[in-house]
Design a binder for these strands. Structure first.
Lengths: 130, 130
DNA sequence: GATCGTTGTTCCCGTTAATGCATAACTACA
DNA sequence: TGTAGTTATGCATTAACGGGAACAACGATC
């Protein structure tokens, strides 16, 4: 970006932080044949599972019920070509969950779209003639 | 990857209608200080009010309860610099509602953003490496 | 002055989504 | 062999939201 210039031709007169008035906002997600596949909440959940190695710890860390977290994982697994999360019961620590390569791909694909979307929103908000 | 070869440059081979697999979808809206200001449902409602000249007929035409429609109009009116909808009780036909200039501006502003967003979604879906 | 369809508002209900709790099955490890 | 913490699942409860019915006030037109 590099605002660099002295001039600043009126276009960005609006000083970032002080920006008030109407804003364009929104949500994006990736949909499969059976409804939502990956969205913001789901991708955060995936990354928490990656970080903690278990669905239950991931759920607790984001104050989500285990029940709900499990259903999200199940939905993603049933929808991917191959599962995004692999689970194991019993054993050290009682079991756990890990993210597959397919899961990592999904995470990256979503963040790419998400970042482009944030740029889109910023641009549209700036161009709002309202 | 670039299948280097002659065959199928992969880019627009995907035949519009047959497009299957994951899609990028989403929603956009314009937000004011007090939450959602204009979204898809609200703008359709505004246009129905414009068409029918009454909130109740507009609501019926889209199978929405009058109460809900009224709340949406109220929310928009309280949020705009000036009301988007003006109402009158009593009189010919029992009263009615009309769209103000501010309301027309809001409608146009939203559709502009919305159309850009549809293009964005199409592009992102096409570029989905997933 | 009676009529009529609307605005504006209140109250009750059904649906849906998520939470909370309870429990069975599992297995590496001490 | 017992323990621990997890996955997987069922069920009852709660919260949020919109729908639907009801009703007063309104005022141009007949």
């Amino acid at each position: 970006m590099a605002p660099s210039g002295h001039k600043r031709h009126q276009k960005k007169q609006d000083n970032e932080a002080v920006m008030t008035g109407p804003r364009v906002r929104g949500k994006v997600w990736i949909e499969g044949e059976k409804g939502t596949f990956i969205g913001y909440g789901r991708v955060v959940l995936l990354q928490r599972i990656q970080e903690y190695g278990s669905i239950s710890r991931a759920a607790r860390s984001m104050k989500m019920s285990y029940r709900h977290a499990w259903e999200l994982v199940d939905s993603m697994n049933r929808q991917g070509r191959t599962p995004l999360v692999e689970t194991a019961t019993g054993g050290k620590g009682g079991g756990g969950a890990t993210i597959t390569t397919e899961g990592e791909n999904a995470i990256h694909a979503f963040w790419r779209v998400y970042n482009n979307f944030q740029r889109f929103l910023k641009k549209e908000t700036a161009n709002l003639d309202f």
